[in-house]
Simulated scan of single mutants.
Amino acid sequence: MHHSAFARSITLSCIGLFLLAGVCQSEDPVFSGPQPGEPLPSLTVKGVLGKNAGKTFDAMELAGDKPVLIFFVHERTRPAFGLMRAIMDYAKSRSEDGLVSAAVFLTSDPTETEKWMTGIQRYFPESVEFGLSPDGIEGPGAYGLNRNVSLTVLTGRNAKVTSNFALIQPSVQADGPKILKAIVDTIGSGEVPDLASLDGTRMDSRSQRTMSNNDDPNMRPLLRDLIQRDASQADVDAAAKKIEDYVKEHPDARKQLGRISTTIVNSDRLPNYGTEAAQKWLKTWAEKFGSSETEQKQPSDSPEKSRQ
């Protein structure tokens, strides 16, 4: 074999081995926390929001034999926040069926994280416990959490795990349906909701493009409250006031509201967004914040800290 042919053969072999190793590595499962069938250990949480705010409590003692949903938030990223917010909204609706839900933030700076949580507490669902782990960024040792993931989501009943989701890159579209099904299966009743009804937005593809990773994660929950189809006039006005108050203090969110409102108003899908009262607010914001001239006059704001 000529030297050049031999070299090409070695190179191709190395490339093949490299690609094979990459495939194998990508198929390796990611583990974080106790697996289905294993016991749920005691879980100490410092409550920040919810009924146990300001208290230190054991989430597993709180759950007892009831169905339980636990979110361990390793990284405070926008995708993680979005998925947690959507799932916890549904969890709130199942609290009457006995579901006990808690989101536990793992952080090396508990003071900063608590300040952040209390600053946006109106965007967290009620009937759900939100708190910090006193064990820092690693979380409770008995849980064996993997700090290389963004979220560890557990469901359980009778103090045993029924499902485990270790998510490196959380996605509402990809991971939401699986987690919702696990919750329904753990409770033992109900139907798995679709994401459209959960989001309350049913945005078309053009609207979805306005929700980039650089957008304020609080705007979507705020708008969702506005466009509920069963909202009363008082509900719509209250939601609109929250939005107006928020965008006064957040210039980037103001521009984002203008983009979203303009996209919806200029489409043929405006009647799909809430009541007539909500649609009037969308038209108002499209006119008020949607022009390029308005955006140019508003100062830029630094993006919210996305990691702990």
Rank of each mutant, 00 (worst) to 15 (best):
V149H: 02
W281H: 15
G274P: 03
D109M: 04
E249S: 13
P193A: 05
P34D: 04
I70F: 09
M211I: 11
I168K: 15
A234G: 04
S300F: 11
S300W: 10
K66S: 14
I264R: 10
P140Y: 01
L49D: 01
G16L: 13
D65K: 09
N52Q: 12
L180K: 02
G98I: 02
S212P: 01
G50R: 03
D199V: 00
Q256L: 11
N164D: 09
T162R: 11
L180F: 11
D204S: 09
G156N: 01
T201L: 14
V48L: 03
S127P: 00
E27G: 00
T11A: 14
Q173K: 11
S205W: 11
T275N: 11
A53P: 07
L151G: 08
I227N: 05
K297Y: 02
S95T: 15
K283A: 12
E126D: 14
A240I: 08
E112F: 06
N146S: 07
E293R: 13
E61G: 13
Q296N: 10
L106C: 09
R202C: 09
Y273R: 15
C14I: 15
L40A: 04
E249M: 10
R76M: 10
E138A: 12
Q121S: 14
R157K: 15
F165H: 12
G188D: 06
G82P: 00
R259H: 12
R157E: 09
K160M: 10
D235C: 09
L40Q: 02
L270C: 07
Y273I: 08
Y246K: 10
